[in-house]
Write a protein that binds this DNA or RNA. Sequence first.
DNA 1: TACAAGATCCCCT
DNA 2: GGGGATCTTGTAC
Length: 203
Amino acid sequence: MSKLPLSFYTRPDSVTIARDLIGKHFYSCLDGVLTGGMIVETEAYSGVDDAACHAHLGRRTKRTQIMYETGGVAYVYLIYGIYSLFNIVTNVEGTADAVLIRAIAPLEGLGEMQLRRGLSKLETRLTAGPGLLTQAMGISTLHNGTSLLGKEIWLEDRGDSFSEEEVLAGPRVGVAYAGEDAKLPWRFSLKGSKWVSKAKPTY
DNA sequence: TACAAGATCCCCT
DNA sequence: GGGGATCTTGTAC
């Protein structure tokens, strides 16, 4: 159980990082409560050249500013006025790459996560979706810019690894507006895991 | 200053 | 399987 080092995040290829994150563990310790689990679904966003990325064509706004920072910090933004989506900023300063964490298999703090989600029993609605896992783990836009090497939110390698056959690659979800880039196989998921989100890509 | 749309999810049919 | 919730953000005027 070792925290992922800065060098994991500053690598140049967010697609490789998204693939490597399947099987890594994602935890938060907020209000003194440890919650989280193993990552089973991710999506890569590749900076200015990626039409699906918020920083496409070098767009630099208050929201996207954090994506240009050195990798290893959180990019959290609000979608549909309701859900916080958690991304890991990658690559070096000046680039705007990120990886969206879409789903985890819950392991720690199940009771607290159910409480935050308003669920009375364990079901996939707990953490199988990008807007769900943030709610379960208590992550909100307040955590935008938080270092992933600190004590609030971090990632770990607990020795779980999966072969190429066990990790599926397919088109990303909800990015039809990105045209051809929406077809890129930049969504990764753990084959057979019931904790992978139900969302289907447009292609 | 205004408006349209969004890296989603829930609940009802 | 489909529509509505809900409000921030980006861009246009």
